[in-house]
């Protein structure tokens, strides 16, 4: 006979900021079928403590707003079922690592997105509206590289998983470098030389240790590790040709 699931969950939730005053507070939440971590956090805020701060938007794994640290691992909480991660009756929910806490479960994402800009994350057009549509063959090797990396939702799970970010605060991080890689493979983009210089070096792709925590934990099953390896190859070729 199957064991009955526990009816109550004890949930330790991080309260406060990152200034040393923060601590975990325990809440008791009823267990429900098909309950997600985001459901648990929402239940706490609506039923127990309206001062709890957290962030979410779409609830369906598209927007990348709701990532948190669940039992020590960064996850997208709207698509993470309690049944998958709760050991026994306990859960621990904390804000993402490697980012400054604003309050409770909300982190300041500015550094994360500023690094996208530093990595040359903007598309640089080479055509005007008077030009015909660019034709990019779906089967071309460059387009295939883009396909493999393009579905990033900017949730920050990779950034929070990365030891190199923790060691080297200037490191651009997996998501920003993954974004740069998609643009480096976009044949329509005109900023590829400048972007290559932006992603090279101690704060860029060469700092990656290929530990692949980002790839292991990416909820979209992307491989920033492969993207960063691609940037390493691309920068190496450019350096040998004297183009960097």
């Amino acid at each position: 006979m199957a064991m009955r699931e526990p009816e109550l969950l004890e949930v330790d939730v991080w309260r406060g900021g990152s200034d040393g005053s923060g601590r975990f507070q325990t809440y008791v939440v009823p267990r429900q079928e098909a309950q997600t971590i985001l459901d648990v956090v929402t239940w706490i805020q609506r039923k127990l403590d309206p001062t709890l701060a957290y962030r979410f938007a779409c609830r369906v794994g598209m927007c990348g707003s709701c990532a948190m640290t669940v039992n020590g691992r960064p996850r997208w909480t709207c698509r993470t079922h309690v049944a998958k991660v709760a050991s026994g009756k306990r859960l621990q929910i904390a804000p993402l690592a490697n980012l400054t806490i604003v309050r409770d479960l909300v982190v300041d994402m500015r550094e994360f997105f500023d690094k996208w800009a530093k990595a040359g994350g903007q598309f640089t057009p080479t055509a005007s509206r008077r030009d015909d549509f660019a034709r990019v063959a779906p089967e071309s090797p460059a387009r295939r590289e883009v396909d493999a990396a393009i579905e990033c939702i900017g949730c920050g799970v990779c950034y929070a998983s990365c030891d190199v970010v923790a060691w080297n605060p200037a490191y651009l991080g997996p998501a920003a470098l993954n974004r740069a890689w998609t643009l480096q493979n976009d044949v329509r983009d005109g900023g590829r030389v400048a972007r290559l210089a932006a992603v090279a070096g101690d704060a860029g792709c060469h700092a990656c240790h290929t530990q692949a925590a980002c790839t292991e934990r990416c909820p979209k099953q992307l491989s920033p590790t492969a993207a960063i390896a691609g940037l390493k190859r691309m920068t190496a070729r450019a350096a040998l040709k004297g183009e960097l």
């Binding site: 210089a197 932006a198 060469h206 450019a238 350096a239 040998l240 960097l244």
Partner: peptide, 15 residues
């Protein structure tokens, strides 16, 4: 160090 310098160091270490 410049991006070029860092890239060359990385290449030298790999080689």
């Amino acid at each position: 160090m410049s991006a070029r310098g860092e890239t060359r160091l990385w290449l030298a270490q790999r080689a």
